[in-house]
Design a protein around this nucleic acid. Structure first.
Lengths: 204, 204
DNA sequence: TTCACTTTTTGACTTTTGTCAAAAGATAAA
DNA sequence: TTTATCTTTTGACAAAAGTCAAAAAGTGAA
Protein backbone atom coordinates (compact mmCIF):
# COMPACT_ATOMS: atom_id res chain seq x y z
CA UNK A 1 0.00 0.00 0.00
CA UNK A 2 2.77 2.42 0.89
CA UNK A 3 4.78 3.05 -2.20
CA UNK A 4 8.01 3.86 -0.46
CA UNK A 5 8.39 1.00 1.94
CA UNK A 6 9.92 -1.55 -0.40
CA UNK A 7 12.21 1.03 -1.91
CA UNK A 8 13.65 2.69 1.15
CA UNK A 9 13.47 0.41 4.13
CA UNK A 10 15.99 2.37 6.12
CA UNK A 11 13.91 5.53 6.16
CA UNK A 12 12.16 7.26 8.99
CA UNK A 13 8.43 7.30 8.30
CA UNK A 14 7.13 9.12 11.33
CA UNK A 15 3.84 10.93 11.59
CA UNK A 16 4.52 14.39 12.98
CA UNK A 17 2.55 17.55 13.60
CA UNK A 18 4.62 19.62 11.26
CA UNK A 19 3.28 22.85 9.85
CA UNK A 20 5.66 22.96 6.91
CA UNK A 21 2.95 22.14 4.36
CA UNK A 22 0.55 24.63 5.92
CA UNK A 23 3.11 27.38 5.64
CA UNK A 24 3.60 26.68 1.94
CA UNK A 25 -0.11 26.51 1.19
CA UNK A 26 -1.21 29.56 3.12
CA UNK A 27 0.72 31.70 0.64
CA UNK A 28 -2.08 30.95 -1.81
CA UNK A 29 -5.16 31.48 0.37
CA UNK A 30 -6.11 31.62 4.01
CA UNK A 31 -6.81 28.33 5.76
CA UNK A 32 -9.09 28.05 8.75
CA UNK A 33 -7.51 27.00 12.04
CA UNK A 34 -9.48 23.77 12.04
CA UNK A 35 -8.42 22.84 8.51
CA UNK A 36 -4.85 23.74 9.34
CA UNK A 37 -4.75 21.28 12.22
CA UNK A 38 -6.43 18.54 10.24
CA UNK A 39 -3.99 19.02 7.38
CA UNK A 40 -0.98 18.96 9.67
CA UNK A 41 -2.16 15.68 11.15
CA UNK A 42 -2.26 14.09 7.72
CA UNK A 43 1.26 15.02 6.84
CA UNK A 44 3.96 12.39 7.07
CA UNK A 45 7.56 13.51 7.39
CA UNK A 46 10.08 11.44 5.49
CA UNK A 47 13.83 11.70 5.22
CA UNK A 48 15.10 10.04 2.06
CA UNK A 49 18.79 9.51 1.27
CA UNK A 50 20.48 10.38 -1.99
CA UNK A 51 19.88 7.76 -4.67
CA UNK A 52 16.43 6.71 -3.47
CA UNK A 53 13.63 6.39 -6.00
CA UNK A 54 10.66 8.27 -4.58
CA UNK A 55 8.53 7.03 -7.47
CA UNK A 56 9.14 4.25 -9.98
CA UNK A 57 7.85 4.08 -13.53
CA UNK A 58 4.77 1.88 -13.73
CA UNK A 59 3.70 2.53 -10.14
CA UNK A 60 1.03 5.00 -9.18
CA UNK A 61 2.03 8.20 -7.44
CA UNK A 62 0.09 8.06 -4.18
CA UNK A 63 1.72 11.00 -2.41
CA UNK A 64 1.96 14.71 -2.89
CA UNK A 65 5.37 15.58 -1.48
CA UNK A 66 6.52 18.94 -0.18
CA UNK A 67 10.30 19.21 -0.25
CA UNK A 68 11.63 20.93 2.86
CA UNK A 69 15.30 20.40 2.10
CA UNK A 70 17.29 18.53 -0.52
CA UNK A 71 17.14 18.14 -4.25
CA UNK A 72 15.32 15.77 -6.62
CA UNK A 73 14.56 15.22 -10.27
CA UNK A 74 12.10 13.33 -12.42
CA UNK A 75 13.27 11.30 -15.39
CA UNK A 76 11.88 8.86 -17.91
CA UNK A 77 13.52 6.43 -20.29
CA UNK A 78 13.88 7.12 -24.00
CA UNK A 79 15.80 4.54 -26.06
CA UNK A 80 17.42 3.33 -22.86
CA UNK A 81 18.62 6.79 -21.89
CA UNK A 82 17.38 8.72 -18.87
CA UNK A 83 15.76 12.01 -19.80
CA UNK A 84 15.24 14.57 -17.03
CA UNK A 85 11.78 16.06 -17.07
CA UNK A 86 12.17 18.44 -14.13
CA UNK A 87 14.16 19.33 -11.04
CA UNK A 88 12.77 20.11 -7.59
CA UNK A 89 14.31 22.37 -4.96
CA UNK A 90 13.44 23.33 -1.41
CA UNK A 91 9.76 24.35 -1.05
CA UNK A 92 8.80 22.73 -4.34
CA UNK A 93 6.03 20.22 -4.67
CA UNK A 94 7.21 16.85 -5.86
CA UNK A 95 4.91 14.38 -7.60
CA UNK A 96 4.19 13.03 -11.02
CA UNK A 97 1.32 15.35 -11.85
CA UNK A 98 -0.07 12.93 -14.41
CA UNK A 99 0.02 9.90 -12.18
CA UNK A 100 -1.09 11.67 -9.02
CA UNK A 101 -4.09 13.45 -10.49
CA UNK A 102 -5.30 10.53 -12.59
CA UNK A 103 -4.13 7.79 -10.18
CA UNK A 104 -2.80 5.87 -13.15
CA UNK A 105 0.69 4.31 -13.46
CA UNK A 106 3.48 6.82 -13.82
CA UNK A 107 5.64 7.05 -16.91
CA UNK A 108 8.32 8.88 -14.97
CA UNK A 109 10.62 8.14 -12.07
CA UNK A 110 11.44 10.51 -9.25
CA UNK A 111 14.98 10.26 -7.94
CA UNK A 112 16.48 11.86 -4.84
CA UNK A 113 19.72 13.59 -5.84
CA UNK A 114 20.64 15.08 -2.45
CA UNK A 115 19.47 13.74 0.93
CA UNK A 116 16.01 15.19 1.29
CA UNK A 117 13.29 15.86 3.83
CA UNK A 118 9.74 15.58 2.53
CA UNK A 119 6.35 16.27 4.05
CA UNK A 120 3.90 14.05 2.24
CA UNK A 121 0.15 13.71 1.95
CA UNK A 122 -1.50 10.53 0.83
CA UNK A 123 -3.84 10.84 -2.17
CA UNK A 124 -6.99 9.64 -0.41
CA UNK A 125 -6.32 11.90 2.56
CA UNK A 126 -6.02 14.89 0.28
CA UNK A 127 -9.28 13.96 -1.44
CA UNK A 128 -10.91 13.85 1.97
CA UNK A 129 -9.54 17.29 2.70
CA UNK A 130 -10.85 18.63 -0.60
CA UNK A 131 -14.31 17.33 0.20
CA UNK A 132 -14.39 18.54 3.78
CA UNK A 133 -12.81 21.95 3.19
CA UNK A 134 -13.70 23.30 -0.26
CA UNK A 135 -11.19 26.13 0.30
CA UNK A 136 -8.47 23.61 -0.49
CA UNK A 137 -9.76 23.38 -4.03
CA UNK A 138 -9.01 27.06 -4.36
CA UNK A 139 -5.47 26.49 -3.13
CA UNK A 140 -5.07 23.50 -5.41
CA UNK A 141 -6.28 25.51 -8.35
CA UNK A 142 -4.00 28.49 -7.69
CA UNK A 143 -1.06 26.24 -7.07
CA UNK A 144 -1.43 24.35 -10.31
CA UNK A 145 -2.01 27.61 -12.16
CA UNK A 146 1.41 28.73 -10.97
CA UNK A 147 3.09 25.56 -12.19
CA UNK A 148 1.11 25.75 -15.43
CA UNK A 149 2.67 29.10 -16.26
CA UNK A 150 6.12 27.65 -15.61
CA UNK A 151 5.40 24.87 -18.10
CA UNK A 152 4.26 27.40 -20.68
CA UNK A 153 7.56 29.24 -20.32
CA UNK A 154 9.46 26.03 -20.77
CA UNK A 155 7.56 25.16 -23.93
CA UNK A 156 8.35 28.59 -25.30
CA UNK A 157 12.03 28.05 -24.60
CA UNK A 158 12.13 24.60 -26.22
CA UNK A 159 10.10 25.85 -29.15
CA UNK A 160 12.14 28.84 -30.23
CA UNK A 161 15.46 29.10 -28.41
CA UNK A 162 18.62 27.41 -29.70
CA UNK A 163 20.50 25.29 -27.16
CA UNK A 164 22.90 28.07 -26.21
CA UNK A 165 20.13 30.47 -25.26
CA UNK A 166 18.28 27.80 -23.30
CA UNK A 167 21.45 27.26 -21.29
CA UNK A 168 21.96 30.98 -20.77
CA UNK A 169 18.40 31.29 -19.51
CA UNK A 170 19.18 28.80 -16.76
CA UNK A 171 22.47 30.52 -16.07
CA UNK A 172 20.54 33.72 -15.47
CA UNK A 173 17.39 32.47 -13.73
CA UNK A 174 18.44 29.32 -11.90
CA UNK A 175 22.23 29.45 -11.42
CA UNK A 176 21.97 27.15 -8.40
CA UNK A 177 20.69 24.40 -10.69
CA UNK A 178 24.04 24.38 -12.48
CA UNK A 179 25.82 23.86 -9.17
CA UNK A 180 23.62 21.06 -7.94
CA UNK A 181 22.72 19.00 -11.01
CA UNK A 182 25.17 17.10 -13.18
CA UNK A 183 25.95 18.09 -16.75
CA UNK A 184 24.19 15.05 -18.16
CA UNK A 185 21.02 15.71 -16.18
CA UNK A 186 20.91 19.33 -17.29
CA UNK A 187 21.62 18.42 -20.92
CA UNK A 188 18.69 16.03 -21.18
CA UNK A 189 16.49 18.56 -19.38
CA UNK A 190 17.40 21.09 -22.09
CA UNK A 191 16.80 18.54 -24.80
CA UNK A 192 20.40 18.42 -26.03
CA UNK A 193 23.31 15.98 -25.86
CA UNK A 194 25.81 16.15 -23.05
CA UNK A 195 28.63 16.90 -25.50
CA UNK A 196 26.79 19.87 -26.93
CA UNK A 197 26.20 21.29 -23.47
CA UNK A 198 29.86 20.81 -22.59
CA UNK A 199 30.85 22.74 -25.72
CA UNK A 200 28.34 25.51 -25.06
CA UNK A 201 29.68 25.88 -21.56
CA UNK A 202 33.27 26.07 -22.83
CA UNK A 203 32.40 29.02 -25.10
CA UNK A 204 30.90 31.35 -22.51
CA UNK B 1 -13.62 48.08 -20.37
CA UNK B 2 -14.73 45.44 -22.80
CA UNK B 3 -11.67 44.17 -24.56
CA UNK B 4 -13.37 43.18 -27.76
CA UNK B 5 -15.34 46.26 -28.59
CA UNK B 6 -12.62 48.28 -30.26
CA UNK B 7 -11.38 45.28 -32.17
CA UNK B 8 -14.55 43.87 -33.60
CA UNK B 9 -17.24 46.48 -33.80
CA UNK B 10 -19.38 44.48 -36.18
CA UNK B 11 -19.87 41.63 -33.75
CA UNK B 12 -22.97 40.40 -31.97
CA UNK B 13 -22.46 40.75 -28.23
CA UNK B 14 -25.73 39.48 -26.89
CA UNK B 15 -26.33 38.13 -23.42
CA UNK B 16 -28.12 34.80 -23.76
CA UNK B 17 -29.20 32.02 -21.45
CA UNK B 18 -27.07 29.44 -23.14
CA UNK B 19 -26.14 26.26 -21.36
CA UNK B 20 -23.13 25.50 -23.54
CA UNK B 21 -20.62 26.34 -20.81
CA UNK B 22 -22.57 24.38 -18.22
CA UNK B 23 -22.52 21.31 -20.45
CA UNK B 24 -18.75 21.51 -20.79
CA UNK B 25 -18.15 22.04 -17.09
CA UNK B 26 -20.49 19.39 -15.75
CA UNK B 27 -18.21 16.76 -17.28
CA UNK B 28 -15.83 17.55 -14.45
CA UNK B 29 -18.18 17.67 -11.48
CA UNK B 30 -21.84 18.08 -10.68
CA UNK B 31 -23.19 21.61 -10.49
CA UNK B 32 -26.23 22.53 -8.44
CA UNK B 33 -29.27 23.76 -10.32
CA UNK B 34 -28.95 27.18 -8.74
CA UNK B 35 -25.29 27.54 -9.69
CA UNK B 36 -26.08 26.31 -13.17
CA UNK B 37 -28.62 29.07 -13.72
CA UNK B 38 -26.39 31.75 -12.26
CA UNK B 39 -23.51 30.63 -14.46
CA UNK B 40 -25.66 30.60 -17.58
CA UNK B 41 -26.76 34.16 -16.87
CA UNK B 42 -23.17 35.32 -16.77
CA UNK B 43 -22.26 33.84 -20.11
CA UNK B 44 -22.05 36.12 -23.10
CA UNK B 45 -22.37 34.61 -26.54
CA UNK B 46 -20.14 36.13 -29.18
CA UNK B 47 -19.74 35.39 -32.86
CA UNK B 48 -16.37 36.48 -34.14
CA UNK B 49 -15.38 36.47 -37.80
CA UNK B 50 -12.15 35.04 -39.20
CA UNK B 51 -9.22 37.39 -38.77
CA UNK B 52 -10.42 38.97 -35.53
CA UNK B 53 -7.97 39.33 -32.67
CA UNK B 54 -9.73 37.99 -29.58
CA UNK B 55 -6.81 39.15 -27.44
CA UNK B 56 -3.96 41.51 -28.25
CA UNK B 57 -0.46 41.43 -26.80
CA UNK B 58 -0.13 43.97 -23.99
CA UNK B 59 -3.80 43.87 -23.05
CA UNK B 60 -5.17 41.89 -20.16
CA UNK B 61 -7.25 38.81 -20.87
CA UNK B 62 -10.54 39.54 -19.14
CA UNK B 63 -12.58 36.66 -20.53
CA UNK B 64 -12.56 32.92 -20.28
CA UNK B 65 -13.92 31.81 -23.66
CA UNK B 66 -15.56 28.51 -24.48
CA UNK B 67 -15.38 27.76 -28.18
CA UNK B 68 -18.62 26.28 -29.48
CA UNK B 69 -17.65 26.27 -33.13
CA UNK B 70 -14.75 27.57 -35.18
CA UNK B 71 -10.99 27.53 -34.88
CA UNK B 72 -8.43 29.82 -33.23
CA UNK B 73 -4.78 30.03 -32.33
CA UNK B 74 -2.51 31.94 -29.99
CA UNK B 75 0.74 33.45 -31.22
CA UNK B 76 3.49 35.73 -29.98
CA UNK B 77 6.19 37.65 -31.77
CA UNK B 78 9.80 36.49 -31.85
CA UNK B 79 12.22 38.58 -33.95
CA UNK B 80 9.26 39.97 -35.86
CA UNK B 81 7.93 36.51 -36.69
CA UNK B 82 4.66 35.11 -35.40
CA UNK B 83 5.12 31.93 -33.37
CA UNK B 84 2.04 29.80 -32.72
CA UNK B 85 1.76 28.74 -29.09
CA UNK B 86 -1.42 26.69 -29.36
CA UNK B 87 -4.52 25.93 -31.40
CA UNK B 88 -8.11 25.73 -30.14
CA UNK B 89 -10.92 23.62 -31.53
CA UNK B 90 -14.60 23.19 -30.76
CA UNK B 91 -15.23 22.70 -27.01
CA UNK B 92 -11.81 24.02 -26.06
CA UNK B 93 -11.30 26.78 -23.58
CA UNK B 94 -9.66 29.82 -25.08
CA UNK B 95 -7.72 32.34 -22.99
CA UNK B 96 -4.18 33.38 -22.25
CA UNK B 97 -3.74 31.35 -19.09
CA UNK B 98 -0.97 33.60 -17.85
CA UNK B 99 -2.82 36.84 -18.43
CA UNK B 100 -6.21 35.59 -17.28
CA UNK B 101 -5.07 34.03 -14.02
CA UNK B 102 -2.70 36.83 -13.06
CA UNK B 103 -4.71 39.65 -14.67
CA UNK B 104 -1.48 41.06 -16.05
CA UNK B 105 -0.86 42.11 -19.67
CA UNK B 106 -0.69 39.25 -22.12
CA UNK B 107 2.45 38.39 -24.08
CA UNK B 108 0.42 36.50 -26.61
CA UNK B 109 -2.29 37.28 -29.14
CA UNK B 110 -5.34 35.16 -29.84
CA UNK B 111 -6.48 35.12 -33.45
CA UNK B 112 -9.67 33.72 -34.92
CA UNK B 113 -8.76 31.52 -37.89
CA UNK B 114 -12.28 30.35 -38.81
CA UNK B 115 -15.51 32.19 -37.99
CA UNK B 116 -16.19 31.23 -34.40
CA UNK B 117 -18.90 31.21 -31.76
CA UNK B 118 -17.72 31.75 -28.21
CA UNK B 119 -19.44 31.68 -24.86
CA UNK B 120 -17.48 33.94 -22.58
CA UNK B 121 -17.30 34.69 -18.88
CA UNK B 122 -15.85 37.92 -17.55
CA UNK B 123 -13.04 37.53 -15.02
CA UNK B 124 -14.75 39.30 -12.14
CA UNK B 125 -17.96 37.36 -12.71
CA UNK B 126 -16.05 34.10 -12.54
CA UNK B 127 -14.38 35.19 -9.30
CA UNK B 128 -17.81 35.92 -7.88
CA UNK B 129 -18.91 32.45 -8.90
CA UNK B 130 -15.88 30.89 -7.25
CA UNK B 131 -16.66 32.70 -4.00
CA UNK B 132 -20.37 31.94 -3.98
CA UNK B 133 -20.17 28.32 -5.14
CA UNK B 134 -16.98 26.65 -3.88
CA UNK B 135 -17.79 23.65 -6.07
CA UNK B 136 -16.52 25.68 -9.01
CA UNK B 137 -13.05 25.63 -7.51
CA UNK B 138 -13.16 21.88 -7.85
CA UNK B 139 -14.09 22.19 -11.50
CA UNK B 140 -11.43 24.83 -12.06
CA UNK B 141 -8.84 22.62 -10.46
CA UNK B 142 -9.75 19.50 -12.44
CA UNK B 143 -9.93 21.46 -15.65
CA UNK B 144 -6.51 23.00 -15.28
CA UNK B 145 -5.07 19.65 -14.23
CA UNK B 146 -6.24 18.28 -17.57
CA UNK B 147 -4.59 21.08 -19.54
CA UNK B 148 -1.46 20.76 -17.41
CA UNK B 149 -0.99 17.18 -18.52
CA UNK B 150 -1.32 18.23 -22.15
CA UNK B 151 1.46 20.77 -21.67
CA UNK B 152 3.66 18.11 -20.10
CA UNK B 153 3.19 15.94 -23.16
CA UNK B 154 4.11 18.80 -25.42
CA UNK B 155 7.30 19.51 -23.49
CA UNK B 156 8.25 15.87 -23.79
CA UNK B 157 7.75 16.03 -27.54
CA UNK B 158 9.80 19.21 -27.99
CA UNK B 159 12.49 17.90 -25.66
CA UNK B 160 13.27 14.58 -27.27
CA UNK B 161 11.57 14.14 -30.62
CA UNK B 162 13.17 15.25 -33.88
CA UNK B 163 11.01 17.40 -36.15
CA UNK B 164 9.81 14.48 -38.25
CA UNK B 165 8.45 12.57 -35.26
CA UNK B 166 6.76 15.65 -33.86
CA UNK B 167 4.97 16.03 -37.17
CA UNK B 168 4.01 12.36 -37.26
CA UNK B 169 2.59 12.65 -33.76
CA UNK B 170 0.19 15.33 -34.97
CA UNK B 171 -0.57 13.29 -38.07
CA UNK B 172 -1.63 10.46 -35.81
CA UNK B 173 -3.32 12.27 -32.93
CA UNK B 174 -4.73 15.46 -34.45
CA UNK B 175 -5.06 14.92 -38.19
CA UNK B 176 -7.79 17.57 -38.39
CA UNK B 177 -5.24 20.17 -37.31
CA UNK B 178 -3.33 19.56 -40.54
CA UNK B 179 -6.47 20.26 -42.55
CA UNK B 180 -7.42 23.42 -40.76
CA UNK B 181 -4.18 25.22 -39.94
CA UNK B 182 -1.68 26.55 -42.48
CA UNK B 183 1.76 25.05 -42.95
CA UNK B 184 3.47 28.10 -41.47
CA UNK B 185 1.30 28.06 -38.36
CA UNK B 186 1.95 24.38 -37.76
CA UNK B 187 5.68 24.76 -38.38
CA UNK B 188 6.12 27.45 -35.74
CA UNK B 189 3.93 25.43 -33.36
CA UNK B 190 6.34 22.50 -33.82
CA UNK B 191 9.35 24.77 -33.37
CA UNK B 192 10.70 24.29 -36.89
CA UNK B 193 10.95 26.35 -40.06
CA UNK B 194 8.26 26.24 -42.68
CA UNK B 195 10.72 24.87 -45.25
CA UNK B 196 11.67 21.98 -43.00
CA UNK B 197 8.05 21.06 -42.44
CA UNK B 198 7.40 21.21 -46.18
CA UNK B 199 10.30 18.81 -46.75
CA UNK B 200 9.17 16.46 -44.01
CA UNK B 201 5.74 16.34 -45.51
CA UNK B 202 7.13 15.59 -48.97
CA UNK B 203 8.96 12.52 -47.66
CA UNK B 204 6.05 10.73 -46.01
C1' DT C 1 48.50 7.33 -2.46
C1' DT C 2 46.59 4.15 -5.64
C1' DC C 3 42.92 2.13 -8.04
C1' DA C 4 38.38 1.88 -9.90
C1' DC C 5 34.71 4.35 -11.38
C1' DT C 6 32.07 8.21 -12.96
C1' DT C 7 31.72 12.61 -15.16
C1' DT C 8 33.28 15.93 -18.39
C1' DT C 9 35.86 17.41 -22.36
C1' DT C 10 37.72 17.16 -26.99
C1' DG C 11 38.23 15.66 -31.87
C1' DA C 12 36.49 14.02 -36.22
C1' DC C 13 32.77 13.32 -38.74
C1' DT C 14 27.58 12.90 -39.89
C1' DT C 15 22.92 14.28 -39.71
C1' DT C 16 19.46 17.55 -38.94
C1' DT C 17 17.67 21.86 -39.40
C1' DG C 18 17.91 26.76 -40.77
C1' DT C 19 18.41 30.58 -44.16
C1' DC C 20 17.98 32.92 -48.35
C1' DA C 21 16.22 33.20 -52.83
C1' DA C 22 13.50 31.88 -56.43
C1' DA C 23 9.86 29.17 -58.51
C1' DA C 24 5.42 27.06 -58.40
C1' DG C 25 0.82 26.76 -56.78
C1' DA C 26 -3.39 28.48 -54.72
C1' DT C 27 -6.83 32.09 -53.76
C1' DA C 28 -9.55 35.92 -54.21
C1' DA C 29 -10.79 40.28 -56.08
C1' DA C 30 -11.25 43.34 -60.18
C1' DT D 1 -9.62 35.97 -67.36
C1' DT D 2 -6.07 38.73 -65.41
C1' DT D 3 -3.70 40.52 -61.67
C1' DA D 4 -2.16 40.82 -57.13
C1' DT D 5 -1.34 38.43 -53.01
C1' DC D 6 -0.39 34.77 -50.11
C1' DT D 7 1.15 30.00 -49.31
C1' DT D 8 3.97 26.15 -50.35
C1' DT D 9 7.82 23.94 -52.56
C1' DT D 10 12.52 23.45 -54.17
C1' DG D 11 17.57 24.27 -54.53
C1' DA D 12 22.01 25.55 -52.73
C1' DC D 13 24.47 26.36 -49.00
C1' DA D 14 25.43 27.38 -43.88
C1' DA D 15 24.85 26.61 -39.12
C1' DA D 16 23.45 23.82 -35.25
C1' DA D 17 23.44 19.72 -32.99
C1' DG D 18 24.21 14.60 -32.73
C1' DT D 19 27.25 10.43 -32.60
C1' DC D 20 31.13 7.73 -31.56
C1' DA D 21 35.47 7.19 -29.54
C1' DA D 22 39.09 8.47 -26.76
C1' DA D 23 41.33 11.42 -23.46
C1' DA D 24 41.19 14.16 -19.33
C1' DA D 25 39.44 15.40 -14.97
C1' DG D 26 37.12 14.50 -10.79
C1' DT D 27 35.54 11.41 -6.83
C1' DG D 28 35.64 8.21 -3.36
C1' DA D 29 37.03 3.94 -1.20
C1' DA D 30 40.76 0.78 0.20
Amino acid sequence: MFLFKPLCTSINTEKTNMYFVTEILKQFATISEKAKIELAEMVIKRELPKGTLLLEEGKTCKYLNFLESGFARAFYYQDGKKITSWFAFENDIVASMYSFTTQKPSFENIEIIENSVFHSIYFEQLEKLYRKYPEFNLIGRLLIEKYFIELEERILSLQIQPAKERYQKILKNQPELLQRASLGHIASYLGISQETLSRIRANI
